[in-house]
Amino acid sequence: MNCSATDCLLQMYDEQHDLEDYQSGVPRWCTGCGDNAILAAVQRLCRDEGLRPEKTVFVSGIGCSSRFPHYMKTYGFHGIHGRALPVAEGVKMARPDLTVFVNTGDGDCCSIGAAHWIHAIRYNMNLTVFLHDNQIYGLTKKQASPTSPIGTKSNTTPRGSYLDALNPLSVTLGVANASFVAQAVDWIPESLFEIVKAAYHHKGFSFVRILQRCPEWLPKSLDPWMQDPNSVQLLHHENALQISAGLSRVYKNQLRHDPLDMNRAREIASSHDVIPVGILYQNRDIPRYEETRQTGVLRTTATVRKGFEAELDKYSV
């Protein structure tokens, strides 16, 4: 559609930034909240990749995790509940030169914004999307979310939630044009960072579900998984992520998985006994909507005048 003049300039110097260049304010999340771990990983990513703060936008909806953009010293858009994805799509469509991240919670993405989630997968725009999934509504003080395990006691389900949890990985893998689906957990910072980095480098709709703790409302729900390293299954492949020696010492449950194998990815996504961590699916060949929709027309006053006059000719009497 358009490009700014700055895109045409050669970058004459290396972008070098410190972590502080991306840090803004003191996060007002609870101690032990998984959002802090995600923020640390993302700030590190920005520094390591030398992202220009003025060319980077974090878009969020509403919820604890959607405060994320306020803690980044980049551009940010803290919008309305459930609508982070369409806002981010608009930003990307108008400005393909910007790096756009989306922070959305399990209520934001999987409940009120579910329609947008489904279609965002289809559009496959080049966005890096973090689903901060703590399986509970936090900001509104403990209501069951679509990803709450059945039986979760909350203020709206005091006798336990009634429905089986929705699986965000299976849903995403079921939608046409899914191009990058990964899962991370907040308590393994090294793999969280590697997954976030891979998601950033994927050109397309990179969907990362991050299982995170909510120390305030569901303090013990993830304990069984945290305390038993074998309940976490690390995915690795020569075409995807490799597991470091350090991680291997703790996490021995590992699975070699080719991210191009969609059927296997769906099986892994629906495992009940282990939490798969890593890249479940990646397909680099799926077209990106913002590129498909490029008009190839350089927008100048002359172009508009010509097109406009040609249309008026059609209606002239």
Partner: peptide, 30 residues
Amino acid sequence: VFEKVGGIVHQAEDEIAACAFAIGASYASK
């Protein structure tokens, strides 16, 4: 006709998305 002058019509998944998409694009450019 819009593409002939470099414009885009985006048919969104619903009315809310159409408005949010337009707001996102407005925020980032014209």
